[in-house]
Design a protein around this nucleic acid. Structure first.
Lengths: 93, 93
DNA sequence: TCATAATATTGTGTAAACACAACAAAATGT
DNA sequence: ACATTTTGTTGTGTTTACACAATATTATGA
């Protein structure tokens, strides 16, 4: 399962789903489906979304759950933004 | 169109497609299709591949063409690895 | 040279990512 | 209170990312 923070970044930017959809050339409902986690975008759409928010793809999408913004702001060391990879390289499913 | 450097990183790691496929739990031909650009992966698979190579997703996948390794190694400033985003945020199609 | 591994090619099938439409519900602003 | 925007829900259709199989071609190595 892929987690995402699209809604968080979108709201911070003051964009509606329609706005964001227009910015990345998809249907507005597609943004809704993504935000609700109904489906996982292609890396193409992911790159476009990350470009709109000017963040790395990993800040928007993750294989693990994101820390809450609260924990990320209060314990910036423990809740690292670019989660470091596992010891060797077994991929988490 | 999304460009990728899967083959480059795979070869550098001395992995066969079969190996890489096993590492990210997909069919070996899927890796072939990705490397030849026949299709664009989900961001989930992109994250897994990036994790295997321990690189950011943007180092593996790009909306623009990648600089050659040669230019990247000889002109490390001009041919930046994490291509900086456009001026405001119009997404490149 | 021969065997084996790696890659390419083609085909069939399925699930999921999209587009688009219609409408309902909720929120926001005047 | 009303109008408008935003979001949610459901449905239908198409495309494409995948799985899997079979076989051909090319490399690698003993």
């Amino acid at each position: 399962m892929v987690q995402n923070r699209i809604a968080v970044f979108r709201v911070e930017k003051g964009l509606s789903r329609k706005d964001l959809a227009a910015a990345v050339n998809v249907n507005p409902q597609t943004i809704g489906f993504l935000e609700r986690g109904t489906y996982t975008p292609s890396v193409e759409l992911a790159l476009k979304l990350a470009a709109v928010f000017r963040v790395p793809v990993e800040a928007l999408f993750s294989l693990q759950s994101f820390p809450t913004l609260a924990s990320q702001l209060t314990h910036p060391i423990t809740a690292q933004k670019e989660q470091t990879h596992a010891r060797h390289e077994p991929v988490e499913r």
